[in-house]
């Protein structure tokens, strides 16, 4: 009885791309992203369409880097934070690539990687799959919080939805950076109902996934160069460390959180750090993938974290369910 999927045929990362908005460009990773738009508009009239354009941008950039046309892609897996995932369908419909829309809140990027590995491991597998996830601060503020011009203060545990997107193109293969195993997360309700403390809402799910992973695989955190989490932020990262310590697990210095890395919290007023589907995707594509490609890291565990909720569920006082799927990425040599 196991929950980990070891992929018979590893999924090889063929190409990657990232794009961000102004705040993310001004952060410590700013120069690493493939594209940024100072206006956050990405040439679109509304914030919702801007997020769609952001998705199309990263997809095009990843295709360009691989020297491929979109017709070479057999399946597009995409998701975002907007109601009914309209950013993905609105921005990516023009390509005419077969599409599965995904929703895992901010964990969608790793959810997409897991599904892509499945498609590439089918009895009659697809040859190339693209995973695109995006988030846009303005669209998220409008949908989940308050009008953009509304003047208010936020609590220190609140997170900042990243205006960011990332895309990976994958194919069957066992050379270079490959996805070799993965595991779906369990939905964990820690009882937290405060949407301004999503780190605390997601940390129990993250701890559950990591504990299950290390117990089942028999591996230890030191077998990895980095254990990357999507958007726990400072608050969620510290809670995760406490929760794991209670289970006798320590990530020591191997833990890296995309939400913490994306901004300079001393200079940028993002409170506990970044969040959103695009946070994990853009930081993975801009920072960690190049590190793996350059051989600076050989083996990483990528775990995105999602807070499953809607504005209505939060207003009704419902608790926020967390989810944390995991994928193992490692450099394979032929």
């Amino acid at each position: 009885m196991g929950h980990i999927w070891e992929f018979e045929a590893p999924a090889r990362v063929l190409s990657h791309a990232s794009a961000v908005g102004r705040e993310e460009f001004l952060g410590p990773l700013g120069s690493l992203f493939d594209y940024h738009d100072e206006s956050d508009r990405f040439g679109a009239k509304t914030w919702e369409k801007a997020e769609g354009a952001l998705g199309a941008t990263v997809f095009n950039l990843a295709l360009g880097r691989a020297g491929l046309s979109h017709t070479a892609i057999d399946l597009l897996l995409a998701g975002d934070l907007q109601n009914q995932c309209v950013a993905s369908s609105g921005g990516l419909s023009v390509f005419g690539v077969p599409y599965l829309g995904l929703y895992g809140a901010c964990s969608t990027f790793v959810e997409g990687l897991l599904v892509s590995a499945l498609a590439l491991n089918a009895a009659q597998p697809l040859s190339r799959v693209a995973v695109v996830t995006t988030s846009h601060n303005c669209a998220a503020e409008r949908q989940f919080r308050l009008p953009l011009e509304y003047g208010g203060q936020r609590t220190p545990t609140a997170q900042w939805t990243a205006t960011a997107g990332g895309c990976l193109l994958l194919e069957r293969g066992r050379q270079g950076v490959c996805l070799t195993a993965g595991m779906a997360g369990r939905m964990v309700d820690g009882g937290v109902s405060d949407a301004a403390n999503m780190g605390a809402a997601m940390a129990p799910a993250a701890a559950d996934s990591l504990v299950r992973w290390f117990r089942e695989s028999g591996e230890s955190p030191t077998d990895y160069d980095a254990i990357i989490t999507g958007d726990l932020g400072q608050e969620g990262s510290e809670i995760l460390s406490d929760l794991l310590a209670m289970k006798g697990l320590s990530l020591s210095d191997r833990h890296r959180d995309c939400g913490v890395l994306l901004y300079d919290r001393a200079r940028q007023d993002v409170h506990a750090g970044g969040s959103g589907c695009g946070c994990c995707a853009s930081v993975t594509a801009a920072l960690f993938l190049p590190q793996l490609l350059r051989g600076e890291m050989r083996r990483v565990l990528l775990m995105a974290t999602g807070a499953l909720m809607s504005p209505t569920s939060v207003q009704q006082g419902g608790s926020i369910v967390g989810i944390a799927p995991i994928v193992r990425m490692e450099v394979l040599e032929k």
Binding site: G21, R22, E23, S39, D40, W47, N137, C138, E141, P147, L148, E149, W160, T163, Y263, Q268, D269, V270
Partner: peptide, 8 residues
């Protein structure tokens, strides 16, 4: 006016 992004 048109809406503007929030600045961190």
């Amino acid at each position: 006016f048109k809406s503007r992004p929030k600045r961190a």
